[in-house]
């Protein structure tokens, strides 16, 4: 969607025609992009016109770097894993580092 808007501003209706998902899904996606400041949406008569916000996109471009996405996700998963482990060891009585035996 951002790719399309890169070429020119577009109405929500025209954007929706480009994708094989429901109109509601497109509207939600537009709202999410608007909330995070990636696009601006302006009412023109009955149409809603979306345009890119280049300043915001420049700020997040580092985050969009695929290598960064890969490591962010990997580290998020490690964090979840460690948190889950913490909860489990809270439930068990006296687990110490290194002496936990698997089944």
């Amino acid at each position: 969607m951002l790719q399309l808007l890169l070429e020119e501003p577009s109405t929500v209706g025209v954007l929706a025609e480009q994708f094989s998902v429901s109109r509601q899904a497109i509207s939600l996606h537009v709202r999410v992009l608007e909330e995070c400041g990636a696009i601006a949406v302006e009412n023109q008569g009955r149409e809603r016109v979306c345009r890119l916000e280049p300043a915001t996109l420049a700020k997040v471009s580092a985050w969009l770097d695929p290598f960064v996405v890969l490591w962010d996700q990997r580290f998020d998963q490690l964090e979840d894993f460690l948190n889950k482990q913490e909860e489990e060891s809270d439930e068990s009585v006296s687990e110490q580092d290194g002496i936990h035996e698997g089944s």
């Binding site: 998902v21 509601q24 899904a25 939600l28 996606h29 770097d65 996405v69 890969l70 490591w71």
Partner: peptide, 25 residues
Amino acid sequence: LEMGFKEGFAAAHENLDALLAASGE
């Protein structure tokens, strides 16, 4: 970095898919 691209993008797309699915009718 390109390989990160492939995997990172798969991840990003999956998140988008989940978002779109959650918002479906």
